[in-house]
Write a protein that binds this DNA or RNA. Structure first.
Length: 488
RNA sequence: GGCCCCUUCAUCUAGCGGUUAGGAUUCCAGGUUUUCAUCCUGGCCACAGGGGUUCGAGUCCCCUAGGGGUCACCA
């Protein structure tokens, strides 16, 4: 035994080491990097979901980074709102959330490094001069670009100008973005790049610089983001190269468009993810809806989170933009509501809508019936209220249709029959009463159903009357019939 | 305008040289239901246009058209 143990130990260690390096090599780290200028919107959530799924599928990590460097536009409140949305959807960061506003020292250090290595330089051109240059170039129909006048400047800098810092970008050739969705895209340096600013005159670093630095330092291997960033990518590659960082894989996912075919914006109704919670959508419905926008797996429409994780691959993402259309979301939401437990629905109704059902002894009957017919949780609340509260008014059209000549007589009969019954507990018990009256009078079910429906609910349509009566009980049923008999 | 990306039913999409171009949502019809909804069955509806390549093209190439994105000391 001892001998075997001694031989096995190094062998195990070897296996372990191999497994470790194998895992390291294929370790996938993705990120979602919102700027907290408002709420989390649908498009952002989708790229976040894609990133999350890809990391999970590979046993890697998904990290959140808050890009809050623009102090004027960012707010702590907005950051919190975004985090709340993630919590609601059950997506979480695998590591501590990174706030760019707290990483100033890091950016300064790398800017200094580029300065020291002569890969970046101070530029003393004023904003006014820059604007003038731009206008001049545009007048000549040239592409506006910095002319590189301070690139190799060694004279005395002009007085009173706080310089910006520019990076020395390549002046010729091409930069190729290897995109996992769109394929390889070549950008010609001459019509894409100039020595762009990496630090403003107040010393603060700019977006394309910090993104590259952060992604590199956070060990991001796969950048999945909206394709509106595609033309930023060459710039970021310049930064990666200058700093000697390894360039990650990029996946630029097409935008989500509105019905007009334009980029989705606040004006397009509900783009705030948390609005969907307020409207009564289930997180899994929203996630399922979004994962199928631009991505598919054969003919499958319904995906649990586990299935998404195991089936998702960013290379299966479509190359074209998709139009945002909520019809399918309603269908999915209805599906997930139907398949949710009553306990969960009850809890959500209370938490999200303040609608408390816990004390109602027939809540199971009610929820069973309403789950079948609701598109949203809000629907359930509305329908439940229509049942629980006596009708405040009777729909005239329904009255006209339902209250034909003998309606009152039939209702009276039904009421009296019902009054004599004991131990009515289930819908079937009430159904039997209706059946009895129908048999006795030799009439169709509609003859009694229609006027009864109007009496109980004030309108036509709605759940089965046996269910309604079970929920409100015998006394209330009789009371509502009496009221209808009096008023109609 | 320069650069880049995109283009299959109304919408989301399958398709990876040979299919009656499939599924889903919506819509319509029928069935189920006392009613409405659900559910079931069926139906309508698409390869942007034009050239090539090929025995054969939604699939490959080119052009045109249309749409979108991006061009800051914003992110």
């Amino acid at each position: 035994m001892l001998n075997r143990g001694r031989i096995l130990l190094p062998f195990n260690l070897l296996l372990f080491t191999i497994a470790y390096f194998k895992q390291r090599k294929s370790m996938v780290v993705t990120r979602f990097a919102p700027s907290p200028t408002g709420y989390l919107h649908i498009g952002g959530l989708r790229t976040a979901l894609f990133s999350y799924l890809w990391a999970r599928k590979n046993g890697g990590k998904f990290v959140l980074r808050i890009e809050d460097t623009d102090k004027a536009r960012n707010s702590e409140e907005a950051a919190q709102k975004i985090l709340q949305a993630f919590t609601w959807l059950g997506l979480s960061s695998d590591e501590e959330i990174v706030y760019q506003s707290q990483r100033d020292d890091i950016y300064r250090k790398y800017i200094q490094q580029l300065l020291d290595e002569n890969k970046a330089y101070y530029c003393y051109m004023t904003k006014e001069e820059l604007d003038a240059l731009r206008e001049e170039q545009q007048a000549k129909k040239e592409r506006p670009r910095y002319d590189g006048r301070y690139r190799d400047f060694s004279g005395t800098p002009p007085k009173g100008v706080e310089p910006v810092i520019r990076i020395k970008a390549p002046t010729s050739g091409t930069i190729t973005v290897h995109d996992g969705i769109k394929g390889s895209i070549e950008f010609k340096v001459e019509d894409m790049l100039d020595d762009f600013i990496i630090a403003r005159s107040d010393g603060s670093p700019t977006y394309n610089f910090v993104v590259a630095v952060d992604d590199a330092l956070m060990g991001i291997t796969d950048v999945i983001r909206g394709d509106d960033h595609l033309s930023n990518t060459p710039k970021q590659i310049v930064v990666y190269n200058a700093l000697g960082f390894e360039v990650p894989k990029f996946y630029h996912v097409p935008m989500i468009h509105n019905a007009q075919g334009k980029k989705l914006s606040k004006r397009d109704g509900a783009t705030d993810v948390m609005e969907y919670k307020k409207m009564g959508y289930l997180p899994e419905a929203l996630l399922n809806f979004l994962v199928r926008l631009g991505w598919s797996h054969g003919d499958q429409e319904i995906f649990s989170l586990e299935e998404m994780v195991s089936l998702f691959d960013p290379s299966d993402i479509n190359r074209s933009a998709s139009i945002y259309n909520v019809e399918k979301l309603d269908w999915l939401n209805a599906h997930y509501i139907k398949n949710s437990s009553n306990e969960r629905i009850e809890r959500l109704l209370e938490e999200d809508f303040g609608f408390i059902l816990s004390s109602h002894d027939k809540k199971e009957v009610l929820l069973d019936a309403l789950k079948e017919r609701a598109k949203t949780l809000k629907d359930i609340v509305d329908m439940a209220q229509e049942i629980l509260n006596p009708p405040s008014q009777y729909d005239p059209k329904a009255v006209k249709k339902a209250f034909k000549a003998d309606a009152k007589e039939i209702l009276e009969d039904f009421k009296n029959t019902l009054a004599q019954k004991e131990s009515l507990h289930l819908p079937v018990d009430y159904h039997d009463v209706m059946e009895e009256v129908v048999q006795k009078r030799q009439i169709g079910f509609g003859k009694i159903g229609q006027p009864l429906r109007v009496s109980l609910l004030g309108k036509l349509g709605g759940p089965g009357l046996d269910v309604v009566m079970t929920v409100i009980g015998k006394e209330e049923t009789i009371a509502r019939i009496d009221k209808a008999l009096r008023e109609l």
